[in-house]
């Protein structure tokens, strides 16, 4: 008889077979470590200007990725910018997920609240995400923290809809009926029986959503309504590099490439997790 394998071991084994997802996880881990250790890794203060060293090309001595229009080290700004992007992605998705999941659970389980909650969510979904973000920023004023709030707000309806759908089918399952007939309180049914069984699609969605949030935050900062200079946010860096596209294209290209790689990594990681968690996936 072979040694039995737990479900999680099976899932991890399946995940490890997906090379793209593993590479993505590696990239995200590097981003995470460099974000935590930014002070140690970055050779320069990301905001300090040296007018005698403006627009040095990548590979210049002391400046691996060159310098921008103010003589600031691009590599240092990239590392600190990674910290900001990761923070925006994690916090905004975390908040959006928490609120959205709660609303979704309530809507899915309590029939009389379903219509009210989901129609409000439908209204939010009817607006393009960036438009909602611009409205929120117009009310609260520009700045990174308001962008986080804005992105959280437009993540809420998506999480709510996903959770509600899963809850609707889970609540008809026999284990829920069993718990209910044994007299379990509603809170226990929701948190201990339904939630653990519907969490997989939410995790997958959240992973992909982090990438989208980073992209949206960069877009809002590029438009000047997100992170404010001299913050080394990647969208701000692209916006400032725009005028140098003809003469020093790397100033905008480097942060652009960073956004591309990070967002792609989160998407591929999300795909990998989905395949690993899918019970119908052949081993």
């Amino acid at each position: 008889m072979t040694k039995s394998t737990s479900l999680w071991q099976l899932r991890i084994r399946r995940f490890r077979k997906d090379r793209l997802a593993v590479v993505s996880l590696g990239i995200i881990s590097i981003l995470l470590i460099s974000a935590i250790l930014a002070q140690v890794i970055a050779p320069y203060d990301p905001a300090s200007q040296r007018m005698s060293e403006r627009r040095l090309p990548p590979g210049s001595p002391g400046h691996l990725l060159g310098t921008d229009g103010f003589g600031r080290d691009i590599a240092s700004r990239l590392v600190y910018g990674g910290r900001i992007s990761l923070m925006v992605g994690l916090v905004s998705v975390g908040v959006g997920m928490l609120i959205g999941m709660t609303l979704g659970l309530i809507a899915g389980y309590f029939k009389h609240l379903d219509n009210l909650i989901m129609r409000v969510m439908d209204i939010l979904l009817a607006f393009p995400g960036v438009l909602i973000a611009i409205i929120v920023v117009a009310i609260l004023g520009p700045g990174l923290y308001n962008v986080i709030i804005a992105i959280s707000v437009f993540s809420i309806p998506m999480f709510a809809r996903l959770t509600r759908g899963a809850t609707l089918s889970a609540k008809e399952e026999t284990y829920v009926l069993a718990a209910r007939s044994l007299g379990a309180p509603t809170s226990r049914i929701l948190l201990q029986h339904i939630l653990p069984n519907i969490v997989s699609p939410i995790i997958v969605f959240a992973t992909v959503r982090i990438g989208v949030s980073i992209l949206n935050a960069a877009a809002l900062s590029f438009l000047g309504i997100g992170a404010q200079p001299p913050m080394p946010e990647w969208g701000v860096m692209i916006s400032e590099g725009r005028n140098f596209l003809y003469t020093s294209p790397y100033i905008a290209f480097v942060p652009g490439l960073a956004i591309l790689i990070v967002v792609l990594s989160f998407n591929l990681l999300g795909d990998g997790i989905r395949d690993a968690l899918d019970p119908f996936q052949s081993d």
Binding site: A47, Q49, G69, Q228, P229, P230
Partner: peptide, 25 residues
């Protein structure tokens, strides 16, 4: 203006004045 604002912010930081930039439309 956004360029000049950042240079001034840096220069004033050298004499201890901490400047928060408020770039508006």
């Amino acid at each position: 203006y956004p360029v000049v604002a950042q240079v001034i912010q840096e220069q004033l930081s050298k004499i201890g004045i901490k400047v928060e930039l408020k770039g508006l439309d």
